[in-house]
Amino acid sequence: MLLTNLEIVPGKRITKHLGLVQGSSVRAKHVGRDIMASLKNIFGGELKGYTELLQESREEAINRMQAQAEKVGANAILNVRFSTSSIAQGAAELFAYGTAVVLE
């Protein structure tokens, strides 16, 4: 599966557009990490635990998006976009979406 956030793929022709595919993952923060994070809120700096957590969740969102694309018979997703939103205190949604296409 080819993922790109370009609208074209250099040197390849799109034969079929299969519409929007999306993947999302809602994650709550871990209590232990929360305690570390609240300490970090005094000193400042990178919250490594959260960086990893969000990275994992985003990968999950991408995987789900890919699963959708596979189900509709696509072999590439173009114009991939990400968005993050905190839907409640301590929980965040990671969302990925793009256009599923068939490349020649």
């Binding site: 370009l6 074209i8 250099p10 040197g11 390849k12 990178e46």
Partner: peptide
Amino acid sequence: SKFPPMYRNPPETILVTGGIVISVDY
């Protein structure tokens, strides 16, 4: 920019990402 230059040998493409969570100090 959205559109890459045209090459005679079309290059391969991969999606790359980078993220960071940063906290503000007191």
